[in-house]
Design a protein around this nucleic acid. Sequence first.
DNA 1: TAGCACCTATAGCAACGCTATATGAAGTGC
DNA 2: GCACTTCATATAGCGTTGCTATAGGTGCTA
Lengths: 241, 241
Amino acid sequence: MSFDGQLPPKTRLLRAAAELLANSGGAAVSTRQITQLAGVTAPTLYHHFGDKEGLFDAVVAAGFEEYVAGERDFAPSGHPLEDIRRMWDNHVQFGLNQPELYLVMFGNIRPESRPAIVADAEALMEEMLNKAAVAGQLNVQPREAARSILAANVGVTLMLIAEPATERNLELSTMTRDAMIFAVSADQASGTPEDSGKSSVVVAAIALNAALQASHSDQLSSSELKLFLEWLHRISNSSTS
Amino acid sequence: MSFDGQLPPKTRLLRAAAELLANSGGAAVSTRQITQLAGVTAPTLYHHFGDKEGLFDAVVAAGFEEYVAGERDFAPSGHPLEDIRRMWDNHVQFGLNQPELYLVMFGNIRPESRPAIVADAEALMEEMLNKAAVAGQLNVQPREAARSILAANVGVTLMLIAEPATERNLELSTMTRDAMIFAVSADQASGTPEDSGKSSVVVAAIALNAALQASHSDQLSSSELKLFLEWLHRISNSSTS
DNA sequence: TAGCACCTATAGCAACGCTATATGAAGTGC
DNA sequence: GCACTTCATATAGCGTTGCTATAGGTGCTA
């Protein structure tokens, strides 16, 4: 099979890279393999994508579209925290369905250089968590919650990918998922206010904060709003005891 | 600087690889760099370590000794769950102190091939969680808890490594850590028995299970013990509702 | 027809992981 | 003292990698 059709070389390169990546079985994919499958020579690749990583980034971007589409399709259920669960599961499933692509996206960590896609995924989850915050269901700032949940989500997915497919136990995922969501949710047993349950004023502050930032309210001047948000922020972060 | 001293070439190779890995700043480390710094030619490397990955594995093994030493030094505080917290923090700190080494150890994920070190780290954490289970402080099986906590621990550490050093916020770590530990611990607010709080009989069963496996009790025959453990296991996993 | 972007191909560089082969050193039996 | 095996290191080079200096072709506007 090859992509020698009438498609433009750029598209052929993208498809060839995606296909080789998906079927490489963990082995490295070389530019020569890609260009040969695409029916193109090396300089074409570097003309369109700069370097190998640029091509992979483009493949990743396409993969991320798919990922985001999956995340958004399941979104509006009315119960934000339930949507977060589905986002989590969709994330894991995406990783297990296309492990090579996932590893390029989330597994290629290098010091001090954050993959752009991580920020995108965080933003996506934060957006969802904001709805939970507005509904008063969140215990911590949406951004912190998103970072924390996504970190655990990536860790679990990487672990599952590394396991032999026959031994994969999705209970690891559901257990970690519920632990993280429960930890950031406001409806914990409110019987022990000193340890883990935050007081309702904190929850209210977080909800108000999220609502304010979402609505771009004009009822306060910008300087007033700034100070107000700073107070809220202080309250929200106070009882970390 | 070079390692041309009177040390044997094998040692010089290990030290050269470790040093280059620590100072590479994320860039790849080549065998030629290593052999040159060690004052040795290529075949010597392959004679002693088989291939590049073999050498890295050896470096990782040495790094893991250090990691384990750090984990064990802080261990016996009498409060197992507090020890788990310290294990978590030590894990993160190890990753941030030696990011390159950590990435070779935990970041080099490939499908269906689990790094041996992950299993070791899991065993280490499971061992610690067993103490918590014996003390009746655990909500789930120690093995499942260990896998879950370690997955989150690795995910958080990778995220922190990927961030610019100036932006690193350790709150991500402590927050995720406490979420995970709280989720597996038995002393959650027992006011809501239907949702997250497990009934005390389950906690007792898990504690008993851990105690039995630790003590190699002779008061039951092996077949009796086997059946008994099976029942315990069934009870422990029952109320996942 | 001339000029000008844009795109692609030829050919090849430097660096990579790794190895076939040979040489030196150290111990062992006679 | 001498052949013999064994282990450890070196010389030289193979095949592949990511990437590029240079040049040629194509289609557009003038």
